[in-house]
Design a protein around this nucleic acid. Sequence first.
DNA 1: TTTTGAGTTGTTCGA
DNA 2: GTCGAACAACTCAAA
Length: 472
Amino acid sequence: MHTAIHWFRRDLRVSDNTALHEAASRAERWVPVFILEDALRTGPDVGAARLAFLLRSVEALRKNLEHLGHRLVVRSGRSEEVLPRLAAEVRAEAVFANKRYEPYAQARDRKVASALYAQGVGFELSKDAVAWEEREILTQAGNPFTVFTPYSKVWRSRPQPTPVPRLRQAKDPAPEVPCDPLVLDPSVWGHPLRQPLPAAGERAALDLLERFLDGPVFRYDTARDLPAEDGTSSLSPHLRVGSIGIRTVLARLRAVREKADAPGQRGCDVWLTELIWREFYQQVLHNFPHVLKGAFRTEYDAIRWSDDEGHFQAWCAGRTGYPIVDAAMRCLAATGTMPNRARMIVAMFLTKDLMISWQRGERWFMQQLLDGDLAANNGGWQWSAGTGTDAAPYFRIFNPVTQGEKCDPTGAFVRRWVPELAKLPDATLHQPWEEPFFSPARSGYPDRIVIHAEQRPKCLAMFKAVKRGTDA
DNA sequence: TTTTGAGTTGTTCGA
DNA sequence: GTCGAACAACTCAAA
């Protein structure tokens, strides 16, 4: 093959990139392209911060490609129109890309494939974003797993994939073709976060990985539950845009685990479990696409969730009167991220204390999160709400005070994000209404919008009614 | 086909 | 303060 196109999507890196390697080894020359589709910029699930991070990742990729002597072509428009046009311009015989798993992305890829085939251009997709795809890990009966533990056992029993070999220089230089300068448009780059975005690109992702594997990973099993300690890898935005490859992550983790002591290995194993969850929910989304529209367990679609707009707005703004919930929600708005444990606490609070649909929380998270990923976000929310695959039993309702005391015992996380409470003593920090001298009016921190002890039995009754089939 | 064991992350109550 | 039991049965996956 003389000329190929590599279409970058969620694989914004040069190293350990399956389809790029494929294009580079099978063609004399290759043309890299990124397409800024309208869907990336408009729609209910688009987040300004995530978009800004994506564009910075594209910019970092552009620089990396430059070092290889390649110029990234950036175009805007519909992929099924842009790619055939570009293929004709550069006389490409095939387009290579890494496979995506979301239903809407696969529908788009089918359109792209037929548009390319119509003019005699090939379209090849490679497995890249996950170690194991949706039909590669099945029960003995040949069905997709809906329970995590048996899925993870099979996953762990498989040989781990190794990183893709380093890219060779192309034999011929790629042709110069015009670009849309959209990536450099400052109006697209803006974001609403109070804090700077994390550094984007492959170098930043590898640095994060090495820093994490140099110590924090060995304490991950306990530290991940302490939001103030930042014991997580912070790699999720990079895994989402693909500025690091999953095979690289797995290979480095395995190497580090081999040299660790027993407690350190436990930390490694728990982190690996999180990476397996990522693939579990990806295969759930693919095999059970109805989770995008409603509950995985469809009987729970009968729940009549609360439509209290004031409650929802208070949750979004971090003004529920529950310190751990509010700290987490303000952290999300300011940084575009939230520690794992905190995500569960706020999700439980929205769905069980406020009894507002997990779908509203799911959407809010997608609008806010730098790492917002359709499959993982949906799976996490359905788990918290009790409507999903292998979900939390509905009677397992987090108590926001107990959770706050357990995961933020020193109060550092709450004091950081809820300065109104900074001077409260530890004993009442997670329940300011117990503090005799504390006044919502004077401090500016709101009173509880609901009483947990009252909401819990209401929520249990609601779920029980639906289970009995008597409607909520 | 039937049986068996097991299931991410908790809370509350009462002894 | 600490501990065990109840929460509620149900469905999945494998033997």
